[in-house]
Design a protein around this nucleic acid. Structure first.
Lengths: 139, 139
DNA sequence: TCTTTTGTATTATTGAGTTAATACAACGGT
DNA sequence: ACCGTTGTATTAACTCAATAATACAAAAGA
């Protein structure tokens, strides 16, 4: 499981796990039916408390992305890929809505906002070229 | 001072004050040179602790939007309008950057993102027509 | 049946952030 | 000089979320 957590960026560990599992599933690295690492194993690899991983798995199960089969383990559900993608899109929509609300408050039109986005995306691209790969615990 | 705070939306009170003062200044309701309400007065109007208002004023002073003249009061600084606008734009840029980061992770191109934004903005407009004015303490 | 492996549940600790209570200090007008 | 007004400083309480410590329950398989 190629999951990397950062202890310094303020994002809760369990949330990082959820997000990255969704990513791995949406990207096809984790296919439906595959067994997830047991809670304790992943916790050991990431050097975090098992409860933290349990919380991430619980959230993933609630949304239907994975299935827990009592004592047999946790598996990527059949609809895992679809759900993971949907959740990621929902997260994106939420961000977009926040942004629209804030830019409206600022008196920007949508067109002006679009221009700003293009501008920022150019800046981000430039930064991408300089930035090295992130650091963090990995599994 | 037409400031309305919400005790239920999770945004810290002092932050709401800062944001709304910046808005009032950027919008021209508060012009450079104008005296701000004394900390205790605004605190009384908003029914919050004076320290909360003090914290908001301190932040506004740190960024140069207002000036404190020791015991004479707090005034909108000459560059207040420019600074308030700049801070609001910076906040917007930050949101945009988060959004770009997340959408990149999702595998969206900038153009796809733009389409999503247009789509969401149509949704938001529709919701605007239904929503009534917000409720909250006002001064 | 016993042991191992799985997820679960409960409770405590930690930590950050926000707000409040209260006392202080300085300037200015009378 | 004094009193009232201004902002300041210090400390405490409170809230909330995240994480950890620990014990529990149930199923599978030797």
């Amino acid at each position: 499981m190629d999951i990397r957590i950062s202890l310094t960026d303020g994002v809760p560990i369990y949330q990082q796990i959820v997000t990255q599992v969704r990513y791995l599933i949406a990207a096809g690295s984790l296919e439906p039916g595959i067994e997830m690492p047991p809670i304790r194993v992943l916790a050991e690899q990431l050097q975090v408390n098992p409860n933290t991983v349990a919380r991430a798995y619980r959230e993933l199960e609630l949304e239907g992305t994975v299935e827990k089969r009592s004592t047999r383990g946790t598996f990527v559900s059949d609809s895992g890929s679809k759900l993971a993608t949907r959740h990621r899109q929902a997260a994106l929509h939420e961000r977009i809505d926040q942004l629209l609300a804030e830019s409206t408050q600022l008196g920007f039109s949508v067109d002006q906002l679009i221009k700003e986005i293009h501008s920022r995306s150019r800046v981000m691209e430039r930064m991408q070229k300089k930035a090295g790969p992130g650091r963090g615990k990995s599994a």
